[in-house]
């Protein structure tokens, strides 16, 4: 964003517009004073924000309590809590087949399993990587970039790269072949497809969490370690007594952010497996998308009710984060 070079010429029309806009805006300022200008500065963003975030947020409740396949609210009859009752109608919540909307509960339990595995594995891997990147290694910036690289890739690109590698005759099975093992149907076997989704998701996102943990590690004062070294404290003790407690605020942020994002898992998994084989990688967001739009028997009200239930989980997680970060912040 320097003043010279290409940016200068690219932004020339914008600057010209801004200069032209000053004439009417100056008149507006004379008429309405500073208050009018504040309103004007806030208007574009807040208008777009209201129309596309706040109003839909409020409308969701209306959708979840009305029925039919129409999207226009006036055409939708009021049905009260029917959608919620349908979603929660279950003989045994642990057994999706005993539920009226078995798909919903399949998605719920798949998502729960996914969250546990993905967040667990990812936090562990990110932690180890951050500890290693915090050591005195040459070309630190390069190694940090290596682990960060997949974070920027689009979910479609991530999904397709791994579909190509995990396909029947792909690189993964070549590796199995070289090791003298039987090839595996990574994406068409119910068991492996789920773990493929977990692994690919860890691959794509761990770099982001590594950066947050690394920032935390770098903020730990070096003299603490030097003091511990003088006392001859064994290394594992140092880790538990110095590194871990001081890293706790960052670790909590990582855990909660990862949880919130894992609950919303959709795109990579959708491109990778399309929810299959069967329903083994069908997650909450895909359930909402499909029951609201994609299915022949679409039911926007049901999708809205499911999304509100998911929002409740996210709100609880967000509140946990606020509470934890405040507590962690207060400790310092």
């Amino acid at each position: 964003m320097s003043n010279g070079g290409a940016t200068h010429y690219l932004t020339a029309p914008l600057r010209w517009l801004a200069r032209a806009a000053d004439v009417p805006l100056r008149a507006w300022q004379r008429m309405t004073g500073q208050g009018g200008m504040i309103a004007l500065f806030l208007l574009p963003n807040m208008a777009i924000f209201s129309i596309f975030v706040l109003i839909p947020l409020g409308m969701n409740a209306l959708y979840s309590t009305t029925g039919g396949v129409e999207f226009f609210l006036a055409d939708r009859p009021y049905v009260g809590g029917e959608h919620y009752a349908r979603l929660m109608d279950c003989e045994n919540y642990l057994e999706p087949r005993s539920c009226r909307d078995d798909m919903f509960w399949i998605a719920v339990w798949n998502t729960a399993r996914f969250v546990i595995f993905q967040v667990g594995v990812m936090t562990l891997v990110a932690m180890i990587t951050a500890l290693i990147l915090n050591r005195a290694i040459p070309a630190k910036a390069f190694w940090r970039a290596v682990f960060f690289f997949p974070v920027l890739l689009s979910p479609v690109v991530v999904g397709l790269i791994w579909r190509w590698i995990l396909q029947r005759q792909g690189l993964a099975n070549l590796a199995m072949f070289e090791m003298g093992l039987e090839p595996v149907n990574w994406l068409t076997d119910r068991f492996w497809a789920f773990f493929a989704a977990v692994g690919v998701s860890v691959w794509a996102h761990m770099g982001f969490y590594t950066l947050i943990l690394l920032a935390g590690l770098q903020a730990i004062p070096r003299d603490l370690y030097e003091a511990a070294e003088m006392d001859g404290t064994p290394p594992f003790r140092v880790f538990y007594r110095i590194t871990l407690p001081l890293l706790m605020p960052n670790l909590l942020v990582v855990l909660v952010l990862a949880l919130i994002r894992a609950v919303q898992i959709f795109d990579e998994a959708y491109v990778l497996t399309g929810g299959g084989p069967g329903t083994s990688t069908m997650f909450m967001t895909q359930y909402i998308y499909e029951s609201g739009f994609a299915n022949l028997l679409r039911n926007p009200g049901l999708a809205a009710a499911a999304s509100i239930l998911m929002a409740l989980v996210l709100v609880v997680l967000t509140l946990c984060q606020l509470w934890l970060s405040r507590r962690a912040g207060g400790d310092r």
């Binding site: 596309f52 839909p56 947020l57 969701n60 919130i260 739009f293 926007p300 999304s307 998911m310 996210l314």
Partner: peptide
């Protein structure tokens, strides 16, 4: 923290 998936249906109708 409001993700797209939470407002998908109403956002669709607004658009």
């Amino acid at each position: 923290m409001v993700p797209l998936s939470v407002i998908l249906v109403p956002l669709y109708s607004v658009v």
